[in-house]
Amino acid sequence: MDLFLTQLLNGLVYSVLLFLVSAGLALIFGLLGIVNLAHGSFFMLGGFVALSVTAATGSFWLAMLLAPIPVMAVAGLIEVVFLRRLYARSQLDQVLLTFGLSFILTDVTETIWGKGLSSLQEPQGLREGVSILGNVFPAYRLALLAFGFICAFAIWLVLERTRAGSMVRAGVDDARTAMGIGLNVPALRTATFAIGGGLAALAGVVAGPLLGVFSGIDVEVLIPAFIVVAIGGLGSLRGALIGSLVIGFADTLGKAYIPGVSMFLIYFAMIGILLVRPYGLFGQDPAGG
C-alpha cells in the first residue's frame, strides 16, 4: 500500500478544511475590505451552537443546517451596528474593532457553554472506516472532502452565474459606480458579512468531529486561515482555494516527511510566496501595479 498516496489524501482533506474557513474570510475582505479578526469566533460559535443542537436532537445534519443561522444573525448585526461606521476609517481601526469583538465573543461563548473541551460526534453512517489503498481511511474525512468541493463549486456558481453574484462582484470591483447604477451596496455588504460568518460557522460544525469544539479554537483556526488568505491574495476566492491547497499539502507532507521543521514549514511557504508575489498568488496591488 502506498503511504505517499494516503498522505496526499490527508493533505487534501486538510486543505478542504482550510478552504471552508478561509473562503468566508476572503469573501468578506473582497467586498468589505475588512480584515475580520472575529472570523475564528464565528467558526467557534458555529461549533458550539451545533453542540447544543446535537445535544437536543441527536442529529448532526440538523446541526449543520441550523448552526449557521444564529451566527449569520450575529454577523449581520455586527456589520450593521459596528462595521458600517468604520468603512471610511483606517484599516487599523477596523482591525482593532474586530479584534475586540473576538474577545467579547469568546467571553460570551464561555459564559454560555463554559471552558470545557468538547467535540461533535460524526453522523451515523460515517463513523466507520472505508478501505482504500489497502488501508482504513475514515469515511467522515472522505465525506468532508466531497462536501468541501461541493461548497467551493457552489460559491463559484453563485458568484459567477447568478444575479446576486454579479452584484457582489460589481461591489468588489467598484463600489462607487455600483451604487451609481442603483445597487444597494450597504445591504450587499451586510449580506456578505453575514454569509461569510455563516460559512465560518458551517466550517466550525463540519470540523467539529476532527478538531473539537472549545474556547480557544477560534485563534487556532484563524492563524492558518490568514496564512491561506495572505498566500492566495486578500479577497480572492480562487486564491483562498489555491492557498488552502498549498498550506494543506505543505503542512501534511511536512509532518510526514520532515517532522523536524513541520512547525515552521507553512510559515516558510508563506514567506517564500510573498517574497515573489507580495500581494499573494491572485491578489492585486492596490496601487494598480
Binding site: 503511504l3 494516503t6 498522505q7 482533506v13 488501508n135 474525512r141 476532527l210 472549545f214 510526514a256
Partner: peptide, 29 residues
C-alpha cells in the same frame, strides 16, 4: 490541528501499543 500525517505513518506498520502524551485540545484531537 490535524494528526492524520502521523497517524497514517503509524497505521502502515502498527506497533503493538502506542504511548501518548497530550493535554487539552491536542489530547481530544
Amino acid at each position: 490541528n490535524d494528526f492524520s500525517a502521523y497517524i497514517s505513518d503509524l497505521v502502515t506498520s502498527p506497533p503493538p501499543m502506542t504511548y501518548v502524551f497530550y493535554s487539552g485540545s491536542d489530547a481530544i484531537r
